[in-house]
C-alpha cells in the first residue's frame, strides 16, 4: 500500500515538472516583466486607466461576446438539423463543415478578404447588382465574420455530439404532455445541451478574445487587444505594457468565463 502511494507520487513528478516548465515559469516571468517598466506595478492597471487601452478592451469584449452568441446560435440550429435529418450527402456536408478546424487564423483572414475584400466575392456581386461596393473585410464586421468562421466547426463538433446524446424519449414525453415545438425546445432540448453550449461557448469566447492570426491579416485599421499587445511588443518594444496587457487579457477572459459559468449554473438549478 505504502509503496503504491510512493509510486503514485513518483508519477506526479513529471506532471509537476511539466506545469513548472510550461506554465508557472513563463507566467512568473510575465508578471515580473510587467512590473519592471517605468510605471512599476501601476502598469497592471494601464488597461483600465489608459483610455485607448480601455476602449480596445471594451471593443474586444463586445466583439467576442457577439462572436460567441452568433456561433452558438448558428451552431445549435445546424447541429439540431444535422442530428435529426438523414439525407444523401449528409456525411460529406458534416466533414465539409468541420474542414476549417485545421486552418490557421491567417488563412481564415485571407478567406474573409476573398469574400469581403476590395476584390472579393461580395464586392463584385454587389457591384454587379448596382448596389455599390460592399467591402467590410478590414472592419470589425470582417473580424466578426472571420472569428465566427473560425469557431463554428469547434462549436459544431461539440454540439452535434451533445444533440446525438439527448434521449429522444425526453422530447416525446414533453410532447405527450402537450408541449408545442417551441416549448419542447425551451424546456427540454436547450437545457439538455446546456453543458455543451457552456463549454463550446467558453472556447469560442476565449478564442475570440485572444485570436491573433485573423486579426493580424485583417486588422490594419481596428484595435483589438491581441493586436495592441503585438504592437507594443514588437514595434514599440514596450515589454512591460505588453506583458501587463497580456495578464489583464488572461484574467478578464477567465473572470468572464467564471461568472458566466456561475450564472448559468444557478440558472439551470432554478429553471422549471
Amino acid at each position: 500500500m505504502h509503496s503504491a502511494d510512493r509510486l503514485a507520487r513518483l508519477f506526479l513528478l513529471p506532471l509537476f515538472l511539466f506545469v513548472a516548465a510550461f506554465f508557472l515559469l513563463p507566467m512568473v516571468r510575465l508578471v515580473g516583466v510587467a512590473g519592471s517598466g517605468p510605471n512599476g506595478l501601476a502598469e497592471y492597471l494601464a488597461i483600465l486607466t489608459n483610455p485607448r487601452h480601455l476602449a480596445t478592451l471594451l471593443a474586444t469584449l463586445a466583439l467576442s461576446a457577439a462572436v460567441t452568441a452568433a456561433t452558438l446560435a448558428i451552431g445549435t440550429v445546424v447541429a439540431l438539423f444535422l442530428a435529426r435529418n438523414r439525407f444523401v450527402g449528409r456525411p460529406l456536408l458534416v466533414s465539409l463543415l468541420t474542414l476549417p478546424l485545421a486552418f490557421p487564423g491567417v488563412v481564415v483572414g485571407f478567406m474573409v478578404i476573398l469574400l469581403a475584400g476590395r476584390q472579393g466575392l461580395l464586392s463584385s456581386l454587389s457591384m454587379g447588382l448596382g448596389m455599390g461596393r460592399w467591402v467590410f473585410a478590414y472592419s470589425m464586421a470582417g473580424l466578426f465574420a472571420g472569428y465566427v468562421y473560425f469557431s463554428l466547426p469547434r462549436v459544431l463538433v461539440t454540439l452535434m455530439a451533445a444533440v446525438e446524446k439527448l434521449d429522444p424519449a425526453l422530447e416525446e414525453a414533453a410532447r405527450s404532455l402537450g408541449a408545442s415545438r417551441a416549448q419542447v425546445m425551451r424546456d427540454v432540448t436547450l437545457p439538455g445541451i446546456a453543458p455543451a453550449l457552456m463549454a463550446s461557448g467558453a472556447i469560442a469566447f476565449a478564442t475570440a478574445m485572444g485570436a491573433f492570426g485573423t486579426a493580424f491579416t485583417l486588422a490594419t485599421r481596428i484595435d483589438v487587444l491581441a493586436m495592441t499587445i503585438y504592437t507594443e511588443f514588437t514595434l514599440n518594444a514596450n515589454f512591460a505594457t505588453a506583458a501587463a496587457l497580456s495578464i489583464a487579457l488572461g484574467l478578464i477572459t477567465w473572470m468572464v468565463l467564471a461568472l458566466t459559468r456561475n450564472f448559468a449554473g444557478s440558472g439551470v438549478a432554478a429553471a422549471g
Partner: peptide, 24 residues
Amino acid sequence: PIEKRNVGMVFQSYALFPNMSVID
C-alpha cells in the same frame, strides 16, 4: 400529432426531465 391527442405516456427509460424537480 401527439401533443394534440391528450394521451399520457410512460416510457421504458421513464424520460423524466433531469433539469426539473419531481414536482416540476
